[in-house]
């Protein structure tokens, strides 16, 4: 009897240590970013344009570019994604078409980001002649995050009990009235969580925007959707691998990493908090 428990204790300790090590790795990684990059971050860094071949100055155009690209992607993905989810959950009948749509969504989610990037390059940049632009980048990112929004919205809608719909219909409400007043409001937190996670994903993607929207060095802000732009993710890549003097700008690279990481992890945390709070407050 004792040997069993001893074995168990040893195994469980090993598991605990393994888990702790992985988490430690994460924190260590973040710590190297903070210790190497925090010194660089100040108001100028965040609001100034890059100067002197990007050995000085700030990353403001990159921050703005990331915001434009991400907002553009979400502006398409949110309405299309939520509308698709509503159709799939509330209207669609079982059958071949439904199965096809569902597997299309799963497939789309599994496409590597670089393949999205190449597709975006071929279709938007070259074929539709949109050039290297925010529009090309946003459309490409939109295709990438669409399945995320759809899946999260579907789950949120499915978690609303059937009895809400039945009760509303029995009172003589139409299907759309039922969805709008008695289903969607309760699915909103889940939809919001999914959207925020999609935004975080779009903000962090590099390969697709390198091929469709990003420039290495653009000291001016983009003037329209057809303009190309700097972006945080691509900026980090360039500064770390393509800059003529990588070692010199290393601290600036760390600074950019911190900014991007800060934005993305904050978004993820907000989404997690919304989800947790909603789960606790749910009184049905």
């Amino acid at each position: 009897m004792n040997i069993k428990l001893l074995k168990q204790r040893i195994y469980f300790q090993i598991f605990r240590i393994t888990t702790a090590s992985v988490i430690l790795f994460l924190f260590l990684m973040i710590w190297t970013f903070i210790s190497n990059g925090i010194g660089v971050i100040d108001w100028t860094f965040l609001t100034d344009i890059p100067r002197r071949g990007m050995t000085e100055g700030g990353i403001f155009p990159a921050i703005v570019g990331t915001i434009y690209l991400t907002l553009g992607a979400v502006a398409f993905a949110l309405p299309v994604g939520v509308a698709s989810a509503i159709y799939l959950v509330e209207y669609a009948h079982e059958g071949r078409l439904l199965r096809m749509i569902n597997s299309a969504i799963i497939n789309l989610a599994g496409v590597p980001s670089i393949v999205h990037g190449l597709f975006g390059f071929g279709l938007f940049v070259i074929f539709l002649n949109l050039g290297t632009s925010i529009l090309s980048g946003s459309l490409t990112l939109f295709l990438m995050i669409l399945p995320i929004v759809i899946s999260a919205s579907r789950e949120a809608l499915l978690s609303v009990p059937k009895s809400f719909r039945e009760g509303s219909l029995a009172l003589g409400a139409s299907k759309w009235q039922t969805i709008r007043h008695n289903v969607l409001p309760y699915a909103l937190p889940g939809i919001l969580t999914g959207t925020i996670l999609a935004v975080a994903r779009a903000a962090g993607e590099t390969a697709p925007i390198i091929l469709t929207a990003a420039f290495f060095f653009r000291p001016t802000l983009p003037k329209s959707m057809l303009d190309g732009t700097m972006a945080l993710a691509s900026h980090i890549y360039y500064m770390a691998t393509q800059h003529p003097n990588i070692a010199l700008v290393r601290p600036l690279t760390y600074g950019s990493v911190l900014v991007l990481l800060g934005i993305v992890l904050s978004l993820n945390l907000v989404a997690i908090v919304i989800r947790t709070r909603h789960r606790r407050r749910k009184n049905w």
């Binding site: 992985v22 994460l26 975080a200 993710a233 980090i236 890549y237």
Partner: peptide, 21 residues
């Protein structure tokens, strides 16, 4: 949540860490 955050770190950030450290 920490495991989720691990998934949220952008790939270019991981790449940078691998490259340098």
């Amino acid at each position: 949540p920490i495991v989720e955050l691990l998934a949220g770190v952008p790939s270019v950030v991981y790449g940078f860490f691998a490259l340098v450290t």
